[in-house]
């Protein structure tokens, strides 16, 4: 639901929407989850934990795949890099929640 888009009976649609809003019939459009209003230390902590967590998961997946397929250390090397990339992506989403189109 775009706000400025008026298709066909724009005025009627707009009035209907206004009326529904007034009576609270429509669920409110959910805004993108905003970053928590936290201290700088809290934000730093979150970023650090985020980077560590993805790296740990990447490490775990790589190590598990290697153990299973006996291909040590190909997957380990690959998934550590992917884990790092996922960490950077998570941090990016944390810092710029509204700007990335498919980020949610």
């Amino acid at each position: 639901m775009t706000q400025g888009g008026d298709h066909g009976d724009g005025s009627f649609e707009a009035r209907l929407r206004a009326a529904r809003d007034r009576h609270g019939l429509d669920p409110k459009p959910v805004e993108a989850p905003r970053p928590m209003a936290a201290s700088a230390m809290g934000v730093g902590m979150r970023v650090g934990v985020e980077l560590l967590a993805t790296l740990v998961v990447g490490l775990g997946i790589g190590w598990g795949l290697d153990r299973w397929l006996h291909t040590s250390p190909i997957f380990l090397a690959l998934f550590v890099v992917l884990g790092g990339a996922a960490g950077v992506m998570n941090v990016y989403r944390l810092m710029a929640p509204g700007r990335m189109p498919g980020s949610k």
């Binding site: 934990v49 967590a53 993805t54 990447g58 992917l82 998570n90």
Partner: peptide, 17 residues
């Protein structure tokens, strides 16, 4: 893979924090 890792990292970061 990056998205899957990102998804799986959620419980890890949640618990570690």
């Amino acid at each position: 893979p990056v998205e899957v890792i990102s998804y799986l990292s959620r419980p890890v970061s949640l618990s570690i924090r």
